[in-house]
C-alpha cells in the first residue's frame, strides 16, 4: 500500500465515526449516513494531495460532507452511486430509541435541508456562526436566520406530533 493510501486509511479510521454521526443527524438513518460518508471520503481521496497540505483537514471533510448532503438533496437522494433501497422521506426507525427521540428524528427529517444542516452544525457540532457560514458558503446573517427558522419549524412539527 502506498504512503498516500496508508495515510488516507488512517485518517478515515480516525474520523469516519464522528463524520457518520453528523451524517446520521442530517440524513435520519444509518444507511444513508454511511452512503454520504462514503461519497465524502471518496472525494477527499481524490483531492488528498492538495488537502493534506491544509492544516484544517477536518474542516474540509466536514464541509465536503455537508455540501455533498445538500447537493444530493437537490439532485435527489441516491441518484448516483447508490446500491441501497430508495429511501422514504421519513427516516428508518432505529431500534431502541425512545419514542420522544424518534419523534425528534422524524420532525428533523421534515425541516428543509439547509436549515437542517445549520441546526446540526450549530447545535450538534457546536460550530460557531462564523464557522457554519464558512462551511456552508453563506453569510453569518443567513446562518442566524436559518437557525431561527429551523428551530421554529422544528417546534411546529413537534407540536403537531404531540397533538396526534
Amino acid at each position: 500500500m502506498s504512503d498516500r493510501d496508508a495515510a488516507f486509511q488512517a485518517y478515515f479510521a480516525a474520523r469516519s465515526d464522528a463524520m457518520r454521526g453528523t451524517a446520521y443527524l442530517l440524513c435520519g438513518d444509518w444507511h444513508r449516513a454511511e452512503d454520504l460518508v462514503q461519497q465524502t471520503f471518496t472525494k477527499i481521496y481524490l483531492a488528498w494531495r492538495r488537502i493534506q497540505r491544509h492544516e484544517a483537514m477536518d474542516a474540509y471533510t466536514r464541509q465536503t460532507l455537508v455540501r455533498t448532503f445538500l447537493s444530493e438533496r437537490r439532485r435527489g437522494w441516491f441518484r448516483h452511486e447508490s446500491v441501497g433501497e430508495p429511501p422514504t422521506e421519513v427516516p428508518v426507525t432505529p431500534s431502541g430509541l425512545p419514542e420522544e427521540r424518534l419523534v425528534l428524528l422524524g420532525a428533523l427529517a421534515k425541516v428543509p435541508p439547509k436549515q437542517r444542516a445549520v441546526l446540526v452544525l450549530r447545535y450538534w457540532e457546536d460550530a460557531s456562526v462564523e464557522y457554519t457560514a464558512e462551511l456552508l458558503g453563506i453569510s453569518e446573517g443567513t446562518v442566524k436566520s436559518q437557525a431561527a427558522r429551523g428551530l421554529q419549524t422544528l417546534r411546529g412539527l413537534l407540536a403537531e406530533e404531540r397533538v396526534r
Partner: peptide
C-alpha cells in the same frame, strides 16, 4: 441531539 446519538445503536 445528544440523547438521540446516545440512544441510537450505530
Amino acid at each position: 441531539f445528544h440523547d438521540v446519538m446516545v440512544a441510537s445503536s450505530p
